[in-house]
Simulated assay, not measured.
Amino acid sequence: MVRTTTAAALGAAALLALTGCGASSEASSGGEQQEIDLVGFSILEAANQPLIEAFEKTPGGKGVTFKTSYGASGDQSRAVESGLGADVVHFSLEGDVTRLVDAGLVAKDWNTGPTKGILTQSVVSIVVRKGNPKHIEGWDDLVKPGVEVVTPNPGSSGSARWNILAAYGHTLATGGSEADAKAYLKKFLEHTVALPSSGREATTAFSGGTGDALISYENEAILARQKGEDFDYVVPDQTLLIENPGAVTEDAPPAARKWLDFQLSKEGQKDYAAFGFRPLVDVGDVRVEGANDPSDPFPQPKTLMTIEKDFGGWSNAADKFFDEESGLVPQLQQETGTS
């Protein structure tokens, strides 16, 4: 049985059922055609297609078409800020949405719903070669002699920032100090041999033979295996809950809000689960091909860190770790030559 990992989302299914009834009765104002410009981070592309097809069959999706754009989360957010058309945004990081709030493109109350603006979630995982020849079972194995790591670039990719915080946080979760965590992260970067611009490009690089381990979303690892990639993945004992936010823009058509509601419905979350995302609501039994155990695809890690509890929220984490002038990660990237 798959259960939600966010307690605040437990009531979402009932609430969305009510809002869905209202949307059905309003269905696309007389059958009028509406186009939704959907801008998302790269890993969503495959998972969104079946959701779009299912939504278009609902009363709320009648007459609705989609124009989509996918890429590295930070790059996509900056593109919307600079004028790329968007009715719905679905990014890897909270900061990529708040950038658009600051620009006047998204309402300030975008994250006040039952899931606090989160549309999908996953956990940080470690992808390894078939049979795990380097015997990588956790974070400490990544900094052993001869191990080469691939992770996206934190300058452009949201998934990279989740990865970096999970790597840093595991040291604290196992009793280490912040100095220990900094020392570990420096070693981690010294073992990093590729920093592609997005999570999807990182998977492509690893699939092409670069590195011994890829730091990735669990759902990205599952999707790659569904597509025939012959590698394994490990959910470390200490990992970080990945929470991907989304919002409608201020001038979006009514269908955009109905799409957002559909994403958070039981049907929408079950479809996302089939592609490896951990559902935000109880979707009942679900079999996920490509998972380590398809009948029990989302095991609970021993220690599941969150951005709020362990890092003080994204505003604090962004300044402390990723600020270009004073952040720990740019500093360590310069020291290790991985900037």
Score class of each variant (00 low, 15 high):
32 E>Q: 15
232 D>N: 06
273 A>N: 09
171 T>N: 03
163 N>R: 00
317 A>N: 10
219 N>V: 08
7 A>S: 14
206 F>D: 11
297 P>K: 10
252 A>L: 09
199 G>P: 08
21 C>K: 05
171 T>S: 13
203 T>A: 15
31 G>F: 08
146 G>N: 12
257 R>Y: 07
77 S>A: 15
279 P>Q: 15
236 P>S: 02
56 E>F: 00
242 I>V: 15
118 I>P: 10
179 A>P: 05
265 S>P: 07
236 P>A: 03
199 G>N: 09
147 V>L: 02
104 G>H: 02
215 I>H: 03
206 F>P: 08
88 V>M: 09
128 V>Q: 09
174 T>F: 01
80 V>F: 07
243 E>A: 13
181 A>C: 10
71 G>D: 05
15 L>D: 11
173 A>S: 14
147 V>G: 04
78 R>G: 08
93 L>S: 06
112 T>G: 13
10 L>N: 12
328 L>R: 10
323 D>E: 04
195 L>H: 07
254 P>E: 07
333 Q>N: 04
121 Q>P: 01
157 S>I: 00
17 A>D: 13
57 K>W: 01
324 E>C: 00
18 L>R: 12
284 G>A: 07
294 P>C: 13
200 R>F: 01
284 G>N: 07
143 V>Y: 06
116 K>C: 01
167 A>L: 05
326 S>K: 14
137 E>L: 12
219 N>C: 15
309 K>Y: 07
156 S>G: 00
219 N>I: 02
215 I>S: 07
178 E>I: 00
24 S>A: 11
40 G>S: 09
303 T>W: 04
320 K>Q: 12
13 A>G: 09
205 A>R: 13
107 A>R: 13
326 S>G: 03
278 R>K: 14
13 A>V: 04
218 E>D: 10
72 A>C: 08
94 E>Y: 13
226 Q>L: 07
246 G>Y: 10
321 F>K: 04
74 G>Y: 05
55 F>C: 04
220 E>V: 10
78 R>I: 06
332 L>K: 13
176 G>I: 06
59 P>G: 01
70 Y>R: 09
94 E>I: 11
40 G>C: 06
147 V>M: 01
163 N>L: 00
322 F>R: 13
95 G>S: 06
289 E>Y: 04
15 L>N: 07
177 S>I: 03
134 K>M: 12
166 A>V: 02
202 A>H: 04
32 E>P: 06
192 T>A: 14
14 A>H: 08
270 K>M: 11
292 N>D: 14
229 E>Q: 12
339 S>A: 02
107 A>G: 08
137 E>W: 13
339 S>Q: 00
304 L>V: 12
201 E>N: 08
301 P>C: 11
152 P>Y: 09
